[in-house]
Design a protein around this nucleic acid. Structure first.
Lengths: 351, 351
DNA sequence: CTGAAAGCGCTAACAC
DNA sequence: GTGTTAGCGCTTTCAG
């Protein structure tokens, strides 16, 4: 070892003090530079930056966590009311409490009318100064985007969840590629229909929800090219409500007694299941849907649903927390590990 | 707050000192009890245990990591030579280096002839005193089991990977439910075959590998009940080698030009792909295989493979490390999060 | 058998 | 602008 005054045979990891020594300044100054705090001369900043670079310094997260006097405040902004999937997210945020506490962090939940951009934007702005990081699931809209950018400017780390919003400064999107999810649905539905030909129905929540539109787009792409035998009907819009979707699917089955497949893009699967059962079409119609809620799980086990495409709510919430915390404490993050997968469930690989 | 002399408004978390105070002993004694170290009177142990219980004490992992002078030594014992899947595991162990260092741990890799229980058992025994935890992927055998039990008795934490070994004291199995994986394969293969009927081939590595046998069992179960139209042929044994499986499948296709489906349970998919292509059967024969290696990925993208069932090697290695570290430092662990999923990949949901 | 005390690497209040 | 210093909660000598 060269000039280090370190004790013992411990693995040589570069410490803040090594950086300070190399830069010829004190611990506090290095800390200020690393945390972008004011009160350091430009020249000194450069010296420190160089030393950090030179020594390939990485802060020790354990030490940082231990020394931090206050916990990070993570805020989750989710759609209010909400279907079972949103409910899962909410549960998961709560379940993460103990883990977050060990990380010197804590999460709070807020809800907003996700379908009203005005309400959502107001809710976002109200969070300024209320938290260190914000994780949100809202519909994309210029107002929302502006609100996000304002928070980012105020130094808050913003992460989008499930449905992305393209705002400058937004630090990460935690969710799946919905076009690919739609394509996957088509692979499954088309594959399971085999040689059969005939009409295939589609039920979605709304045409203006980004994720639903993307799924439909991907689904169409593959169906047209790879399963031309199957005839895609006009998508039905059910507002993610079971009562509504049940009615729609009941009508659909009446109009098309020869229906071969059904792709439900959004929520309301309980209604669809009921409609299929009443019409005696459960199992015969190849039905693919999204999100492994308790209803979808039951439908799968009973043989009514043939496949469920899922995004793991628990994983998404944890990932959002990890991303936010890593950002806040400038820790290393394996982005590879944070990609949310498009999961496929059949009745035998249920988790 | 009652009698605590704690400073400030920090979240009240129970500390070692609170336990010491409650038990009327010193920090060092509590530490000795918690780490099962000798030199404490039975009566004192009881007092401490009670206090821990009473206060619901959980150690702060950040503080523990910071204070520990030496790094935990994790040892991985994997099959030597090995196919692409084992290669993935190996790569992942290496990739985890920096993360492990932050956790005050480090991993080493050893290989052994996993097909020879004698060699494996010897390799295991040689590791006594060489590490704090051992993660191993070996074939089950009484000799192996005995070796594991000896290590456990010596205070080493043992975790099994991919293929379980039922040894007393083994602290966790990281891997999938292979019976369920076989059932899932049957769901996919049978589903994609649709109305068709005819022979279905099976290729496995060996009849005496636990995971292969389990997959076959699950596959049979579902095929017999749900796809009686399809005729399961006698499994071919290809020793997980591409050259061998290529030959076998080529012969199979010659004998059964009307082959409808093919399930490959183990490795050697490169050979199967080649055989299907030469026979002009790629795409026509519904082919389902395991493990998303680069070959399987290519087969999927080209349309030769219809589905790949996967266990995420990276996740498995990380999970094994987390489980071992949690055990070693008596940390809380979300077992829910450690369950390895049976993943299904089609060409559009590739990660 | 038990206790006191010195750190681990970092943060942040408080000096200068 | 910059430096000094007192902890964060735990582990681990080293004394008794």
């Amino acid at each position: 070892m060269t000039s280090s005054s370190r004790s013992g045979d411990r693995e040589a990891a570069v410490r803040l003090e090594d950086v300070a020594q190399a830069a010829g300044v004190s611990l506090a100054t290095v800390d200020r530079v690393l945390n972008n705090r004011p009160g350091v001369r430009e020249k000194t900043i450069q010296k420190v930056r160089d030393a950090v670079e030179q020594l390939a310094y990485r802060p020790d997260p354990a030490a940082a966590r231990l020394a931090r006097p206050r916990a990070w405040r993570l805020m989750f902004l989710l759609p209010e009311g909400g279907n079972s999937f949103v409910e899962l997210l909410r549960t998961e945020v709560q379940a993460l409490g103990p883990w977050l506490q060990e990380q010197r962090a804590r999460a709070e939940l807020r809800t907003t009318d996700a379908f009203s951009p005005v309400a959502a934007a107001a809710a976002i702005l109200a969070l300024k100064g209320q938290c260190d990081a914000l994780v949100l699931m809202v519909q994309e809209h210029p107002l929302v985007r502006a609100a996000i950018e304002e928070l980012v400017a105020a130094g808050i780390c913003v992460v989008t969840l499930v449905s992305d919003v393209q705002a400058r400064g937004r630090s990460h999107f935690v969710g799946i590629d919905n076009v690919a999810a739609g394509r996957t649905a088509a692979n499954l539905l088309g594959g399971f229909c085999g040689q059969r030909s005939g009409p295939v129905g589609v039920v979605m929540g709304s045409r203006s929800l980004r994720d639903h539109a993307d799924r439909l787009f991907g689904f169409r792409q593959v169906m047209e090219v790879e399963h031309p035998r199957l005839d895609l009907l006009t998508p039905l819009v059910g507002h993610d409500e079971s009562a509504r979707t049940e009615q729609l699917v009941a009508d659909l089955l009446r109009q098309h007694p020869d229906l071969v497949g059904l792709y439900s893009i959004g929520a309301g699967n309980r209604g669809i299941h009921a409609a299929l059962q009443s019409a005696g079409a459960a199992g015969r119609v190849i039905w693919v849907c999204h999100e492994l809620t308790s209803h979808a799980r039951r439908a799968l086990l009973e043989g009514a649903a043939h496949a469920v495409i899922n995004q793991d709510a628990a994983h998404e919430v944890r990932s959002a927390c990890r991303v936010a915390l890593a950002q806040l404490s400038r820790e290393r993050l394996l982005f590879e590990q944070e990609r949310i997968r498009i999961e496929i469930y059949l009745k035998d690989n249920l988790p």
